[in-house]
C-alpha cells in the first residue's frame, strides 16, 4: 500500500504540466520519479512505474472522458488518490461517521457547514464520499461564482466535478441521480472570524431546500468539525479585499506574515458526521413554492447541523488530537 502511494506524487507533478497542454515530458525528466520511489521494493516500483506511465500515456493522448459539467473522473481519481488521500488520512486524520445516511443510489443533497478560510472542508468532504462510500459515489459540490472566475481554480473545480451554485445546475445534477453537496453559509461561513467558530451563519434564503423539494431528493445534513481551526482568522483586511475583488482578505497568525507558508493549514483532527436524511419525496412538487415549509425545513436542517456540531465539540479531546 505504501508503495502505491509513492508513485502518484511524481505522477501528479507531471499531470499539472500535461494538463496545461505542455508538450510531453522529455525522457530525462522521468528520472526524478524513479529516484523518488527508489526506496521501495523492486516489485512495487515496477508496478508503480507501469501504473504511472499508463496514466501519463492516457493523459497525453487525450484518451479519457469528461461529462457535461467538465468532470474528469480519470484525473480527479488520480489526484484524489495521490495528493488528497494522504492529506485526508495522515494530515487531518478525518474520522467519518454516519456514511450509511448517504444513499447508495439516486440523487441526494448533502448540506454541510462551511469554515476554514480556504475551502478545504469541501475537498475533504469529497474525499470522504469518494473513498469511504460503499457504492463508489462522487460528490458534486456547488461552488461560488468566484471560483469559476479565477484561473486554475475554475479548472480544478470543473475537473473535480463541481459546478456553479445555481438552481439550474443543481436540478440538472440531482435529476441525473448525482450526489450534490452544498454549503449554504457560503463566504459568510468560510470567512467568519475565529471568535465565531462553530456558530452557523444564516442559511441563505433556503434555495437548496426548494431545489430538493422540486427534485424530490432527500437532504442529508452534514457536520464538519476541525476545519474551523485550520486557518484561525483573527482579522480581515477589508480594503485589500475590496481592491482584489475578494469577499474577505484573511489575517491569521501565519498569513500574510509568512507568505506562501502561511497558506499551509494547521494539522487539526477532523470529524465528518452525516446525519439522518430528511425525505422530501412525500411532499407534493408545489411544496417548493410554499415559503413557510421551505423556511421550516431550512431551519430544521440548520438546527440539526448546529446540534451535531455542539455534540461533536463536547466529545472532542483537543483540537489537534
Amino acid at each position: 500500500m505504501a508503495d502505491a502511494k509513492v508513485i502518484p506524487f511524481g505522477e501528479s507533478g507531471r499531470r499539472g504540466r500535461a494538463a496545461a497542454g505542455a508538450p510531453p515530458v522529455p525522457p530525462g525528466a522521468a528520472g526524478s520519479e524513479d529516484r523518488r520511489s527508489a526506496g521501495s521494493g523492486a516489485a512495487g516500483l515496477d508496478e508503480a512505474l507501469a501504473r504511472g506511465l499508463a496514466f501519463v500515456r492516457r493523459r497525453l493522448s487525450g484518451d479519457y472522458e469528461v461529462d457535461d459539467f467538465g468532470y474528469d473522473e480519470h484525473l480527479a481519481d488520480a489526484v484524489l488518490g495521490t495528493v488528497l488521500r494522504p492529506l485526508f488520512e495522515k494530515y487531518f486524520r478525518v474520522e467519518v461517521r454516519g456514511m450509511e445516511n448517504v444513499p447508495d443510489t439516486g440523487g441526494a443533497l448533502i448540506v454541510s457547514n462551511h469554515s476554514g478560510t480556504l475551502p478545504w472542508d469541501g475537498v475533504m468532504l469529497q474525499v470522504a464520499i469518494r473513498d469511504q462510500h460503499p457504492a463508489d459515489r462522487n460528490l458534486r459540490l456547488l461552488a461560488a461564482d468566484l471560483v469559476f472566475q479565477l484561473p486554475f481554480f475554475n479548472w480544478l473545480a470543473r475537473k473535480g466535478g463541481h459546478t456553479l451554485a445555481c438552481v439550474e445546475d443543481a436540478e440538472e445534477l440531482l435529476g441525473r441521480g448525482e450526489l450534490v453537496g452544498v454549503m449554504p453559509e457560503g463566504f459568510k461561513g468560510l470567512g467568519k472570524p475565529f471568535a465565531e467558530r462553530y456558530k452557523l451563519q444564516r442559511f441563505g434564503r433556503g434555495g437548496f431546500v426548494a431545489t430538493a423539494l422540486r427534485t424530490g431528493v432527500p437532504i442529508v445534513p452534514c457536520s464538519i468539525v476541525g476545519a474551523e481551526e485550520i486557518h484561525p482568522m483573527i482579522g480581515n483586511a477589508r480594503v485589500l479585499a475590496r481592491v482584489l475583488g475578494l469577499p474577505y482578505f484573511p489575517v491569521t497568525p501565519t498569513f500574510p506574515w509568512l507568505g506562501p507558508l502561511g497558506t499551509i493549514p494547521l494539522p487539526t483532527k477532523w470529524t465528518i458526521q452525516f446525519g439522518e436524511p430528511i425525505e422530501t419525496a412525500d411532499q407534493p412538487p408545489e411544496a417548493a413554492e410554499d415559503p413557510m415549509l421551505v423556511f421550516q425545513l431550512t431551519d430544521q436542517v440548520r438546527e440539526t447541523i448546529q446540534h451535531t456540531l455542539y455534540k461533536l465539540l463536547m466529545a472532542r479531546r483537543s483540537v489537534f488530537f
Binding site: D145, F148, N154, L164, C166, E168, D169, E172
Partner: peptide, 8 residues
C-alpha cells in the same frame, strides 16, 4: 461565468 453549466 454566472450562467448555468448546461444551457437550455
Amino acid at each position: 461565468v454566472r450562467e448555468p453549466a448546461v444551457a437550455d
